[in-house]
Nucleic acid binder design. Structure first.
Lengths: 130, 130
DNA sequence: TATCTGTTATATTTAATGTATAACAAATAT
DNA sequence: ATATTTGTTATACATTAAATATAACAGATA
């Protein structure tokens, strides 16, 4: 799995890493049962600190994307282990509300907005194709 | 205009305030030509610091949502003053990618995901109705 | 026994966030 | 004219988040 971080970004490294891994799971490049690299080796590959990776793994565990065995490391959970809980839906809707408002102000009509949503969803689900 | 802030949230106050005002503009409850409250009065109403409100206003100006006259304060710009620039589209797509991936992991199918996007867009555009 | 694993504990540095005062310059109101 | 309100700027300060740096521990493996 290829992970690239933007060290200049305002988005925290642990958060970028979380997004990349979740995207890998969604795309299917990370399959259920697979183990993620150890916190030390991934930290080494990315030239970041062990604790930053560990924070990401704890987040992944908390959200139900991986299980952490003492020695097997972080293991990708089967699809649906993470649930679309009311808490998640609220979080998603809050972000969508922000994006929708900003888009409306910038004169993106409903069709254009939804086309972006659709194409991005398919891009992630497909794993390739723009 | 009614603005409510969550003082316990991890989302910065200036960012929450920005979102609320942009939503107000998108909904139409803030009309072009209208002036926002002065930084001091709004800060007073919200029980936050003058500089926090000022930071929000500077952001709104930078993004093209308001013009700031020396004495008239922050004036809402007509629709389309803020453009759907390539930079904005990239920012939106990055956030959508994150939401789509998380949603896919939580087994929201394309129809469900898009229905959320559609209903939120309409909720904001309409100004009411769930 | 040595190594690798996640985990925990401290400590430190840097930057973001928010607050607190104070002052300035331009416009308005009295 | 004087006082007030406006955005703006400049400091300073406290708190927290983010990231790093070491170190150590306990369980599993080689």
């Amino acid at each position: 799995m290829i992970v690239t971080l933007d060290y200049e970004s305002e988005v925290p490294l642990y958060s970028q890493l979380y997004d990349e891994i979740v995207r890998g799971i969604a795309e299917g490049s990370m399959k259920p049962g697979e183990s993620l690299p150890s916190v030390r080796s991934l930290a080494g590959d990315l030239s970041i600190n062990l604790h930053t990776v560990n924070k990401t793994y704890q987040l992944l565990k908390q959200e139900g994307h991986v299980l952490i065995h003492r020695q097997k490391g972080a293991v990708v959970q089967p699809p649906g282990s993470a649930k679309a809980t009311p808490e998640y839906m609220e979080r998603m809707e809050r972000q969508l509300r922000s994006l929708a408002a900003e888009s409306i102000c910038r004169q993106l009509d409903e069709a254009q907005f939804l086309e972006s949503c659709r194409s991005i969803y398919r891009e992630v689900k497909g794993g390739s194709s723009k």
